[in-house]
Amino acid sequence: MAFTGDALLIRGCGRTDFQLGSSNTLYLSVHSKIFTLPDDCLLYPAHDYTGQTVTTVEEEKRLNPRLSKSLKEFVEIMSNLNLPYPKQIDHALPANLVCGLQDMPGNQH
């Protein structure tokens, strides 16, 4: 089994239009790290909006409407999602970028 976070979602993937995102990097990472696992490997995403909790490498390679495409097609899809700007991203992004490091003893920012 593997935990995919927000990189690979069930029949989807994380956004790449903010937080230093890169469609190229996401695609290459999923294809080189996750899609090279055995086809029957269970994948658990960080969340799902439809109540699904698990998928497999084989299912996502075959059925994922974004990541089953070529790199060029994937980048085009991700460039044209036209999703709304997340309401709390201006507060969450700075915290995500330091990953809680500001609270570590001896940390010098």
Score class of each variant (00 low, 15 high):
A2P: 00
G5R: 01
A7P: 00
A7Y: 05
L8N: 04
L9C: 05
L9E: 00
R11P: 02
R11D: 15
R11H: 12
G12I: 00
C13E: 02
C13V: 04
G14A: 05
R15C: 13
T16R: 01
D17L: 09
F18E: 06
Q19V: 10
Q19N: 15
G21W: 00
G21Y: 03
S23A: 15
S23E: 05
S23I: 00
S23C: 01
N24S: 15
N24Q: 15
Y27D: 07
L28A: 00
L28C: 11
L28V: 00
V30A: 08
H31I: 10
S32A: 10
S32F: 09
S32D: 12
K33R: 14
I34L: 14
I34R: 10
T36V: 13
T36E: 15
L37F: 10
L37K: 15
L37G: 01
L37N: 01
P38D: 15
P38V: 08
C41S: 14
L42T: 11
L43F: 02
Y44R: 13
A46Y: 00
D48E: 08
Y49E: 10
T50C: 14
T50I: 05
T50H: 13
Q52S: 11
Q52D: 10
Q52N: 12
T53Q: 14
V54Y: 10
E58V: 04
E60N: 01
E60H: 12
K61P: 07
K61M: 11
R62D: 12
N64S: 09
N64L: 11
P65W: 01
R66Y: 15
R66A: 13
L67K: 07
S68Q: 07
S68N: 11
K69H: 14
K69R: 13
S70H: 10
S70Y: 10
S70L: 05
S70N: 03
L71K: 09
K72T: 14
K72V: 12
E73V: 01
E73D: 15
F74Q: 04
E76C: 04
E76M: 03
M78G: 04
M78S: 02
S79V: 02
S79T: 06
N80D: 02
N80G: 05
N80V: 02
L81R: 09
N82K: 08
N82T: 03
L83T: 06
P84D: 07
P84G: 01
P84Q: 08
P84W: 13
P86D: 05
Q88Y: 10
Q88F: 07
Q88H: 12
I89N: 04
I89F: 08
I89S: 14
I89V: 12
D90C: 00
H91C: 03
H91M: 05
H91V: 07
A92I: 11
A92F: 04
L93R: 12
P94W: 01
P94E: 06
A95H: 09
A95V: 11
N96H: 10
N96S: 08
L97V: 01
V98R: 09
C99V: 10
G100D: 02
G100S: 05
L101K: 06
Q102G: 11
M104A: 14
P105T: 02
P105G: 02
P105I: 03
P105A: 06
P105Y: 06
P105N: 01
G106E: 09
N107C: 14
N107F: 15
Q108T: 13
H109V: 07
